[in-house]
Design a protein around this nucleic acid. Structure first.
Length: 280
DNA sequence: AGTGTATCCTGCAGGC
DNA sequence: TGCCTGCAGGATACAC
């Protein structure tokens, strides 16, 4: 899916244009992306004003007035597109929900695989949901020591640990693999086996790759688009993800792929040795 | 309790 | 060309 950089890109675009706009009407084409029955959902958002657009992990969080929180998780293939007034809605495939705006524009929620979800919460409900997620990796509040403590509580492979949103919010398979390569850590390393210095390198690598990807407005492997429909530019900067059999950009060793928890993990066998600790 | 597996769903690329 | 298989950026219910 859209991971942190992709979701943040969408949120920043929407935050420039949506606040102050009123939802005239919602049209539901795919009820299975909703948590509540379509008529309840439509009644709750009709006439609501969008006050702010924020991100928590991979979730897009729209605060509505009267006070409801609309949370959209894009899953693997979801898109949230803001169309200006007089823009045709018809050409967009896989529309799940259309939000028609008072201004004449529209917010389209599309999703071919429909792994994404949109749900309404009260502020208290969303606060509780949000507390179930781990810390934001880019937050300065997250110290290396706290990150290390969390890591060492788990015997799971570090790649699996990174994908668990209750440990850290916003990391997906692409950036997990990319950060592990940058940190020189094998994806199968037990989280609990990392030394403090390695946890520090990993947190640094995560922040670096997320920040660089954000500057490029995300990675478009296939489905991801920004809120204005454009592709992200980070694909060509990936060092391991999707590069099985191609040379490592650092040491030219052939990039390997293993399957871990039903998901591919890409890594360089030389830069990310399985046993020994990282060496400069 | 923590971890791994199967599953939801569609589309596309590659092999034959 | 066309059919078949495998694979895909995520989350979660379930079994162990």
């Amino acid at each position: 899916m859209p991971e942190l950089p992709e979701v943040e890109t969408i949120v920043r675009e929407l935050a420039r244009t949506l606040p102050g706009q009123r939802i005239l009407q919602a049209k539901v084409f795919r009820p299975d992306v909703l948590r509540e029955p379509p008529h309840i959902f439509c009644r709750a958002v009709a006439g609501a004003e969008i006050q702010s657009v924020n991100r928590r992990g991979k979730n897009i969080v729209l605060s509505l007035s009267p006070s409801r929180i609309l949370v959209v998780n894009l899953g693997m293939t979801g898109r949230l597109l803001h169309l200006p007034p007089s823009h045709q809605v018809a050409p967009y495939p896989h529309r799940a929900v259309d939000f028609l705006l008072h201004s004449g524009g529209a917010l389209l929620y599309t999703d071919s695989r429909r792994f994404g979800r949109a749900a309404l919460f009260s502020e208290e409900e969303w606060e509780r949901e949000s507390e179930r997620l781990g810390p934001e990796p880019l937050s300065p509040d997250l110290t290396v020591q706290a990150f290390h403590r969390r890591l060492t509580r788990s015997r799971a492979p570090v790649r699996s640990w990174l994908l668990d949103q209750t440990h850290l919010a916003g990391i997906g398979n692409i950036y997990a693999c990319e950060a592990l390569h940058r940190a020189g850590i094998h994806p199968l390393r037990k989280a609990s086996s990392l030394a403090l210095s390695q946890s520090g390198r990993l947190l640094r690598a995560l922040r670096d790759v997320l920040t660089e990807a954000l500057e490029a407005r995300g990675t478009s492997l296939r489905d991801y688009r920004t809120a204005t429909g454009e592709e992200g530019g980070f694909l060509t900067s990936l060092r391991v993800y999707g590069r099985e059999g191609r040379p490592c950009v650092r040491c030219t060793t052939s990039i390997a792929r293993i399957v871990l928890s039903n998901r591919s993990a890409f890594f360089c066998p030389r830069c990310q040795p399985e046993t020994s600790s990282w060496r400069p």
